[in-house]
Design a protein around this nucleic acid. Structure first.
Length: 269
DNA sequence: CGCCAGGGACGAA
DNA sequence: TTCGTCCATGGC
């Protein structure tokens, strides 16, 4: 069963799912992407101004619409972030990017794993963890695995996490799981805080620094005023913006600007 | 073999 | 507060 969601012309699955913001979506031969979120597996493609969702339940269409940030006018966003020729080019290059509204815990764990690693490696580590501790999800004739809840990871030891290739990040993951379970990390409380305070709260988590905190804010909390600075963005800002601060340049649209810049800069090296 | 990959903790100054 | 150093792992 296929459903359609009106999303407008500013959507291309390849840009959205391959721009580095998510790790659980994979391209199919027809250009659509199959992936997992909210313990559901679906296939997402696009036809003109419509997003095509295969394998979704009727009552989940609002969920997927929100996930794809389908209501937002990305054309207007692109105009606002195009403050110079570099940003015009970057937003033109990644014209079909949408910032996915991902889950908090998955973002926390995924971006802890991401530090000083590569995207294919990160995807591999996450997939192994999901296969070991997630729940089976069936779509078509294939089986997928949900991202495990903290509860399901309750008894996973640091040495267990190491088996998935996460290296020195194993202890961060183990502590994050228990922080969630004992309430030291309070998702609802952090989500209720303004961005700057939420960032400080996130940075109290062992293994979470500036960059990972900003990724959780942007991808796991829909805080579009955050501007994660990784090696690529750091180079780009030094090269094209005289080392200026991203938020000072883009304000409430910082997250969109960051993702266009990241995707474009990575493509040209 | 060395270098780097969507960094961060830690200690020193 | 800022600056080196070290940290596991895998691809190249």
């Amino acid at each position: 069963m296929e459903h359609k969601i009106k999303i407008g012309k500013d959507f291309l699955p390849e840009h959205t799912f391959d721009c580095g913001q998510c790790f659980r979506w994979n391209k199919e031969a027809d250009g659509s992407f199959t992936g997992i979120a909210f313990s559901r597996a679906v296939n997402i493609g696009c036809d003109g101004e419509w997003a095509l969702i295969k394998g979704a339940e009727e009552q989940d269409l609002k969920l997927w619409s929100d996930y794809l940030d389908a209501e937002r006018d990305y054309g207007a966003i692109k105009e606002k972030v195009s403050v110079n020729d570099v940003m015009k080019e970057a937003s033109r290059f990644g014209y079909g990017i949408r910032i996915l509204r991902q889950e908090f815990f998955e973002s926390l764990m995924s971006f802890i794993i991401s530090q000083r690693s590569s995207i294919p490696k990160i995807k591999g580590c996450i997939e192994k963890i999901c296969k070991a501790y997630g729940e089976e999800i069936y779509l078509g004739d294939k089986v997928y695995y949900s991202f495990p809840t903290a509860e399901r990871l309750k008894d996973v030891k640091e040495s267990d996490f190491e088996k998935f290739g996460v290296g020195y990040r194993a202890k961060y993951l183990q502590k994050a799981v228990h922080g969630i379970l004992d309430g030291t990390i309070n998702e609802e409380e952090i989500k209720s805080q303004p961005t700057n305070l939420a960032r400080e709260s996130l940075k109290k988590i062992y293994g979470v620094g500036d960059k990972v905190a900003d990724c959780i804010l942007l991808f796991g909390m829909a805080r579009f005023d955050s501007f994660p600075v990784d090696v690529w963005i750091s180079r780009a800002m030094a090269e094209y913006f005289d080392g200026k601060d991203g938020y000072e340049l883009f304000g409430e649209n910082s997250g969109f600007a960051q993702q266009y810049l990241f995707y474009w800069k990575r493509s040209i090296g």
